[in-house]
Simulated assay, not measured.
Amino acid sequence: MRSTRRTRTTRTAVVSVALAAATLTLLPAGAASAAPVVPAPVASAGTASAPGGNAKILGIDYATWQGDVATAVDAARPAIEQRIAGARPGEKQAIVLDIDNTSLETDFHWFWTQPTPAIAKVRDLTRYANDRGVAIFFVTARPGIIYSLTEWNLKAVGYPVSGLYVRDLPDLFGEVSAYKTGKRAEIEARGYSIIANIGNKESDLVGGHAERTVKLPDYGGKLS
């Protein structure tokens, strides 16, 4: 059963990436900030009241997931706020985030939903931090071919974006955890203190180069 679920998840991800790439190709020059024109069989597919997608296929309850995300973010937020308030003179602080099911509700909406909705609790934390001078970086395992569409999606749903790291071709053949650790090290090398690293999978969080990690639910790897 677990193998079947992995196959189904992989196929869904492949279809999603293919559609995203096709959508990006259809965008006119200079239109990265405009909404991609894609068919939407369900008029309200992007609303919180009508989630679907891979999570629905796997039987993951949307309300339960939202509650589990809120529990994790609410538990970590006071310490993050305290760290921001206690920034050293001249210190450049940063928060690093994964994207799928960490920043965006990827698996809870059908792949044609554009833009994919933000996870409100996480977005609110990034806005709070960014308003106080904290840089917000996204480090994702998504391939570089959908960089522009991913950046547009994040900004369209209200995220501040100080930087976005996607996997180039050589990165696709390595371990995701090693790739993400390396990118956090790059951010540190630019002079930033990474005060929090937020993700929903262990591969988002292992490897150090962050003062604090915040683990969101993935339900035993079911969520991408």
Score class of each variant (00 low, 15 high):
74 D>L: 02
142 R>E: 00
179 Y>Q: 13
90 G>D: 13
213 T>W: 03
9 T>H: 13
70 A>L: 00
176 V>K: 09
102 T>H: 10
1 M>A: 04
154 L>D: 08
40 A>K: 15
154 L>I: 08
84 I>D: 11
86 G>Y: 00
35 A>K: 15
11 R>Q: 15
161 V>I: 07
215 K>Q: 15
22 A>Q: 13
155 K>S: 08
219 Y>L: 03
74 D>F: 11
31 A>C: 14
185 A>V: 00
186 E>R: 11
141 A>W: 04
79 A>K: 12
158 G>F: 04
70 A>K: 10
56 K>C: 04
104 L>P: 01
123 R>V: 03
162 S>C: 11
54 N>K: 05
32 A>S: 09
84 I>W: 07
208 G>K: 01
180 K>S: 05
172 L>A: 15
117 P>W: 02
92 K>F: 08
72 A>F: 11
16 S>D: 10
72 A>N: 12
29 A>R: 14
186 E>W: 04
211 E>K: 13
8 R>L: 15
99 I>F: 01
119 I>L: 04
50 A>L: 06
196 A>Y: 07
35 A>L: 14
116 T>W: 02
176 V>D: 08
129 A>Y: 02
145 I>M: 12
50 A>P: 07
75 A>Q: 14
78 P>L: 00
217 P>L: 03
193 S>P: 02
132 R>M: 10
115 P>G: 04
109 H>M: 02
181 T>I: 04
102 T>W: 12
51 P>Y: 09
155 K>H: 05
216 L>D: 12
44 S>M: 14
